[in-house]
Design a binder for these strands. Structure first.
Length: 339
DNA sequence: GTTATTTGACCTTC
DNA sequence: GAAGGTCAAATAAC
């Protein structure tokens, strides 16, 4: 398992984000408290130059972040059978391979959004993701040392929430659990209360299901679900939304030094259900102080999904990377996470 | 008494 | 028929 390599890049990615946020904090302090920065003795031109310099550093950090995210994406296996992350691609091919003309009844399960996360925890119940789950089954899986647990949202009957997840303990490292999520929560109230701490008020009125990504470009932003996303593709209007939401933390970010052994989360998301071939990379900020790198792919054919236009190399990210600093400065909430 | 978990049976898909 | 996924009755926990 190439966890070390993945961690290195993930750590670089996070470090770049944190560096950018430090620049943002400094810029905010300069703007909000000019008297504390000795600006009374500086002329306005110097102040503007310094602020511009900080802004350029922020943009550079986020640029690097996106580049690292792209590198992570490029390292995706071309086919499940070639995956070094043997646990990360567990979805049976049969679920991806329904032809478009399949009867609806045959595609019932396939229509649900699906993604996978790998976590290193001491117990199956050690992972909190902000939702409440009820176990409804357990099954021995062929070739697997440990049984697979089946969970569905507690609000399935009361609110009709169709979200489910499967928890599979790794054969190799018993402290690693693969969690495969299927479907999206429609019971959002439960999680909403917990996201309140990390989603700026401005975001709350804008929440909507994550859009279907398109092609070619990579963007960073916070999804309505509270996920900091590095999107390879995004509709422009949603891109604006995500960038606006990128303003969520910098001023009062609390950084918990990462412990790569205990809390590193590397997530590999597979969405085999979409008929599109789009790919998105998610840097996922989970509630409960976890952060994981999640790569979500969507497509009817996995190889096609990762080897198509999304095997990015030289996309003009800076040309498209906009950062509304005025909104960045608006948000003053606390947010802490660990790697 | 209510809610959550366990587990064998059944269903779906290939 | 095999394997994975879900249901639902029985059981446990609170």
């Amino acid at each position: 398992m190439e966890e070390v390599m993945g961690f290195d890049r993930s750590a670089h990615l996070i470090n770049e984000l944190l560096q950018g946020m430090e620049f943002a904090k400094e810029l905010r302090n300069r703007i909000m408290n000019p008297e504390n920065k000795g600006c009374l003795s500086d002329d306005n031109d110097d102040q503007v130059a310094l602020n511009n310099s900080l802004l350029e550093k922020m943009l550079s950090s986020f640029d690097k972040t996106i580049t690292i995210a792209k590198l992570l994406h490029i390292q995706l296996p071309l086919h499940p059978s070639e995956s070094p992350h043997s646990l990360t691609i567990s979805s049976p091919i049969s679920e991806n391979s329904h032809p478009d003309d399949s009867p609806p009844s045959k595609r019932r399960r396939v229509m649900m959004r699906k993604w996978t996360k790998i976590v290193k925890m001491s117990s199956e119940r050690g992972v909190e993701d902000g939702f409440s789950w009820r176990k409804y089954g357990q099954k021995d899986i062929l070739g697997a040392k440990f049984p697979r647990g089946y969970y569905r949202c507690t609000h399935r009957h009361t609110k009709g929430c169709a979200a489910t997840k499967q928890v599979q303990r790794s054969d190799g490292d018993e402290s690693i659990y693969q969690i495969m999520y299927r479907g999206e929560h429609t019971c959002f109230q439960g999680a909403q209360a917990q996201f309140d701490d990390i989603i700026p008020a401005q975001m709350k009125s804008e929440q909507q299901p994550p859009p279907s990504p398109k092609e070619q470009e990579v963007y960073v932003g916070l999804s309505p679900e509270g996920e900091l996303k590095v999107e390879s593709e995004q509709e422009p209007e949603n891109r604006a939304q995500y960038f606006r939401s990128l303003s969520f933390t910098p001023a009062n970010l609390q950084v918990v030094q990462p412990d790569p052994i205990e809390s590193y989360l590397m997530s590999y998301c597979s969405d085999f259900d979409s008929p599109t071939t789009s790919v998105s990379n998610y840097l996922q900020v989970l509630p409960y102080n976890h952060i994981g790198l999640t790569v979500e792919t969507s497509g009817t054919e996995f190889t096609e999904a990762v080897s198509g236009p999304n095997s990015v190399t030289n996309s003009p990210m800076m040309d498209d990377f906009e950062f509304p600093i005025e909104e960045l400065l608006d948000f003053g909430g606390n947010f802490s996470f660990e790697l």
